[in-house]
Design a binder for these strands. Structure first.
Lengths: 294, 294
DNA sequence: CATAGCCAATAAGGAAAAATCATGGATATT
DNA sequence: AATATCCATGATTTTTCCTTATTGGCTATG
């Protein structure tokens, strides 16, 4: 049994005539005969009594008719639903991000995006860059926002945000306007745990100057950005933190930024997604939103 | 869009592979490719991201999948419903009949039939034979039970019941065991109105003996069988009535039958139906029931 | 990093199905 | 009766569907 058969049956039933049905459907009358015959065979019943000049639907046809109509309607509905599926920007957005973007960048972007498209719901998953990237590779995420690039032919990386690691401290602890890398080593210093992206980035910058944190005056190793911030505010020491993470404190002068002479620790956050993967509408829209904003 | 396309889509979606789907469906892989391509074109969207070695359904495919399953289920359901439609003997039976069969024969048959098939409901329509026959011709009825044949190529007549017009009276009015047609004319006689089947049949029999009711001793003309019966019981006169209509009175000896010498007024009632019309199950079953009983 | 293996896309040819045209039988209409 | 209408049938053409063979992209393995 086929859609075509049902369409023809419905038309014959409506028009009570093979010929009229054939005209409405723009096919020849023998075709109608053939199809009805096949439909009758496949359903193993007679659908119309051929009375010579006229036809009469049988009891089976009366049963079939409403059901056939229903199926045809459902099919049309599918076409519409599929077309409509792409139109509205709505639904859930599950986004992976590493610590900094997940805590300080994505929430702002999500907020402005949701103002424009209220029918979206965000779910932000914070993991380290490599986990996020693997989830994208395994199709567990449509995209992620990460600070480290992995080399993979499957992935597309698009630079999203410029970030910078900055040395911060209370004005009390470090009243000076600038500092040299050398002098910094004598200052009480707070660092993140091993494996933290921020720490890794910082150590990479130090390596370029053939220095390690081993020569620093480490007063504490802390497990989160906010722990470090609290400690810095509490005057325990200075630290190197993403500017976006301390923007508020810098603006309100609770902390201040002390440029390290001859050292710029810029880094980028990237949007990572699979090259060949088609993004659902809301994801594509959010991508555009992010690229436009930054 | 076609059922076949949906079946293929569902299989690809389930197996997450064109090749596996092709094996399950016993068709070649390029055919799958082709059909999915066509489905994508007709729905104007991408359904699967081809990622090289694997494929991923897109958001549109996720929308389509449950709907496609639903439609396929519905189609199977149709097949079953149609097959099942013919099985049970149930539903409404609208049957046309002329006066005598409608009042004295059909009710008994309907009663015994309903004992066998409790899920049927009868609707008995009493009209004169020509009206019933026309309704059958116009497909307003599947069949009727009539006393008069019309010549039409479209119709099938099947003899159902032998009936006989009999002269009845109270023993008080007509104590004799037999009577001649000649003597009958002096007896007070009750007749039906013009147009009644019984009267017409009786007059046809008289015509064969070149007699009309004009020469009878008519004491009243009455509009229904029961009116005539009441009048005969009230001793107003004798009358000629279908035996089935007075069987009770004959059995209980309230009235008795006086054979008219050299006159047998047998007549038949016929089942009338359209030659080419397919009967719904309950009608076909009732037909068989009637033929078996008589 | 190169090769073998897997998967889908493409091309070309053949088989099956569907549509058409022409025709014939049946049935109303006049 | 003659005509027009309607469905069925048969022969023919067109379209669709399916297969084999091949290509090209990706991946896992040595």
């Amino acid at each position: 049994m086929d859609i075509h058969h049902l369409k023809i049956f419905v038309s014959v039933y409506k028009n009570k005539s093979f010929t009229k049905a054939s005209e409405k459907l723009h096919i020849s009358q023998p075709t109608i005969s053939e199809h009805i015959k096949n439909l009758e065979k496949s359903l193993n019943c007679k659908l119309f009594d051929r009375l010579g000049r006229s036809i009469m639907p049988t009891a089976e046809a009366d049963v079939l008719y409403p059901k056939a109509l229903q199926i045809l309607d459902d099919l049309d509905q599918i076409q519409e639903d599929i077309s409509a599926a792409g139109i509205g920007v709505k639904g859930k957005l599950i986004i992976g991000a590493s610590t900094i973007p997940g805590a300080y960048i994505l929430p702002r972007m999500a907020y402005t995006f949701k103002k424009q498209y209220p029918d979206v719901a965000f779910e932000i998953l914070i993991e380290d860059s490599s986990k996020i990237t693997n989830m994208v590779l395994q199709h567990d995420l449509f995209f992620g926002i990460v600070g480290a690039k992995m080399t993979s032919e499957k992935l597309d990386y698009e630079p999203l945000i410029e970030d910078e690691l900055v040395l911060v401290a209370t004005p009390k602890l470090l009243p000076q306007k600038t500092i040299t890398l050398d002098k910094l080593r004598s200052i009480p210093f707070l660092q993140r745990e091993i494996g933290s992206g921020t720490r890794q980035t910082f150590e990479n910058f130090l390596k370029k100057n053939t220095i390690t944190t081993n020569t620093f005056n480490i007063v504490a190793t802390l497990g989160s950005i906010s722990a470090v911030k609290q400690a810095v505010k509490g005057n325990l020491g200075a630290s190197v933190i993403s500017r976006v993470a301390v923007q508020e404190e810098l603006d309100s002068s609770i902390l201040h930024e002390i440029p390290i002479i001859n050292m710029k620790m810029k880094r980028k956050f990237y949007l990572v997604l699979q090259k060949k993967r088609t993004l659902p509408t809301q994801y594509a829209a959010f991508c555009e939103h992010m690229k436009k904003k930054y």
